[in-house]
Computed example of a mutant assay.
Amino acid sequence: MSGVHGGPDALGVPRWDFSTNANAVGPCPMALSAVQRADPQHYPDPGYTALRHALAAFHGVAVERIVVAGSASEFIARITAAVARSGGQRVWLPALAYGDYAQAAKAWGLQRENQPAQADLLWLCEPASPLGKAEPMVNAVAEQGGVVVLDRAYEPLRLSGRCSLGAGALDRVWQLWTPNKALGLTGVRGAYAIAPLHGLTLARSLEQMAPSWPLGAHAVAMLRAWVQADAQRWLAQSREQLIGWKTAQIALLGELGWACLPSEANYFCARAPHALDVPSLRAQGIKLRDTGSLGLPGHWRLGVLPPAAQAALAAALQPKEETFP
């Protein structure tokens, strides 16, 4: 069974899509232009030589530590397979987590372990999904002996706070980066990971397990644009815009009786004051994300959207006056 995700569905692209965490200020003009100018007539370099050097320089790491991936989900599946193939049997997951971690573990027969010290593969995400906060056990988990992966999909969209792990700790874990969310280009699939200093053997194994050309020309163009100074400046400016929108969105929902949970990212979870008529909302072009599949039943995760979307949401959530004949 495929995982549960936000975004377009059988009805198409929602007009007001609160169900995804993409940067609502986007798409990033520089990255979009690069994607539009990409050459789809030719294969990319199968070794992604220039791209891997650019990513390594951006993060200040050795190029051997860069592993490209078709998407975050593809990397999740591949590294889970690698751990299982090497004899790993147990996985540790946060109490609330992206469903693909557990889905990949189930596919490869890894059993969920409650004690991080007993796990062969351990997952972290910060800012975490769905709450958008720090992982409570991030430092303790990062020190374990298994393969530890820190999913940093939302780090570029962090609106407050900072990463719980310092530079030394980050060098001991795998870092998974998915820039398409920050750039507002989630339809372009492309990601990469930074191997820990002690993880070069596994990095080579992951490269051997990859299909030919995991990244197409458009993904290469997006990732090359991601590391450029002008795109990073745009991203910094977009975060300032998102901070204002987030403040307004939380205030709006609070006035409507919603209980909003704290978050450091461009999304947050909230409990509605009553059951929602989801089909009616979807018919009005509004889509929210039920966080049941993320381990948090009874709540909704809402990406931060601009004022027009917030106004549409407020209008749809207003109690309807009864009419009598």
Rank of each mutant, 00 (worst) to 15 (best):
Arg52Ser: 09
Ala219Ser: 12
Leu317Ala: 00
Val4Ser: 13
Glu207Ala: 08
His59Glu: 15
Arg37Thr: 06
Ala315Met: 13
Pro130Leu: 02
Ser164Lys: 02
Ala22Gly: 14
Lys133Gln: 14
Ala56Thr: 07
Ala248His: 15
Val227Asp: 12
Leu131Cys: 12
Ala167His: 08
His53Ser: 12
Pro262Met: 00
Leu51Gln: 04
Pro307Gly: 07
Glu64Lys: 07
Met1Tyr: 13
Asp290Thr: 01
Arg78Cys: 01
Ala50Phe: 09
Ser293Val: 12
Arg301Met: 15
Asp277Gln: 02
Glu240Asn: 12
Pro279Lys: 06
Ile66Ser: 03
Ala169Glu: 14
Thr201His: 10
Phe75Glu: 10
Arg204Lys: 09
Leu176Phe: 09
Leu11Asn: 14
Pro27Asn: 02
Ala84Tyr: 08
Ala22Pro: 06
Ala82Pro: 00
Asp120Asn: 07
Val173Met: 05
Asp151Leu: 05
Ala102Thr: 09
Glu255Val: 13
Ile76Lys: 12
Gly190Ile: 06
Leu317Ser: 00
Lys133Ser: 10
Leu317Asp: 00
Asp290Ala: 02
Tyr98His: 13
Arg52Leu: 02
Arg271Ser: 14
Gln310Val: 02
Ala105Phe: 05
Pro307Glu: 14
Leu51Pro: 01
Trp16His: 15
Glu264Val: 14
Gln228Asn: 13
Gln175His: 07
Leu253Tyr: 08
Pro262Ala: 00
Ser263Asp: 10
Leu157Glu: 03
Ala95Cys: 11
Gly187Gln: 10
Pro273His: 04
Phe324Val: 15
Val35Ser: 04
Leu261Ile: 06
Ala193Lys: 04
Asp100Met: 13
Phe324Gly: 10
Val25Lys: 09
Asp39Leu: 00
Asp9Leu: 07
Gly70Trp: 08
Arg65Tyr: 03
Thr80Arg: 04
Gln241Pro: 02
Ala22Phe: 15
Thr20Pro: 05
Leu32Gln: 15
Asp151Met: 08
Glu155His: 13
Lys133Val: 13
Pro179Ile: 09
Pro94Cys: 08
Gly168Ala: 06
Gln175Trp: 06
Ala140His: 08
Glu135Ala: 07
Ser71Gly: 11
Gly187Tyr: 07
Leu159His: 08
Gly99Phe: 11
Ser129Ile: 14
His218Lys: 14
Ile243Glu: 13
Gly109Tyr: 01
Leu206Val: 03
Val91His: 12
Arg65Lys: 11
Gln36Val: 11
